[in-house]
Amino acid sequence: MTRSPYGPDPVVVELQGSFVHVPHRCAAEWIAAASDTTGPSGILMPLARPTTRETIRESLALRTLTYEELTEASYALMTEAIPGFSWWQAYRLLMLSNDHLVVGRATLSGLDPWALTVTQWVSAVYVMLKQNTSDKDQFKFDAALDEVPEGVEADSDWGDMSFDQMVANARSTPGMS
């Protein structure tokens, strides 16, 4: 079942074979978590319940939980909580949300990160940043958001598409005609 972009449902992710329930957090809390020193790999920690956070911290300290396992769960959390975006697109949009240009435009548009789900916020910031910009700028922005981070494997959007289909798709992208 697809997760609703509007619903305050908790997210469940797997960590070392156990299920971790992450409660609903508003967009403002997600933005703060993304800005945390742990980066995307550790975003699960500030968003988890305090007791879960403490358990994760203790496990990392004792080396019974590895950084790689935390990273995998954090990426899964972003993917599950923010449907329609890859985790790196969502993470970049959350980080951009700290920029004064985005804060100003969001405020003038009446967007309140304390009142929106993270999916609503990320979608709104994405649309807002593409409004009233040239096709070329939109293309550059999408390309920067889509760029797969180093060391991360992404499923190809091209799948089994033929070369002709790929060319047609590329040509239909704004700024590429």
Partner: peptide
């Protein structure tokens, strides 16, 4: 802690914003 994401520029501006 190793980083994993790169910078993104807000469209229509010259301002580069670090995403990591």
């Amino acid at each position: 802690v190793p980083g994993t994401a790169t910078s993104v520029e807000i469209p229509g501006t010259f301002k580069a914003v670090s995403a990591e």
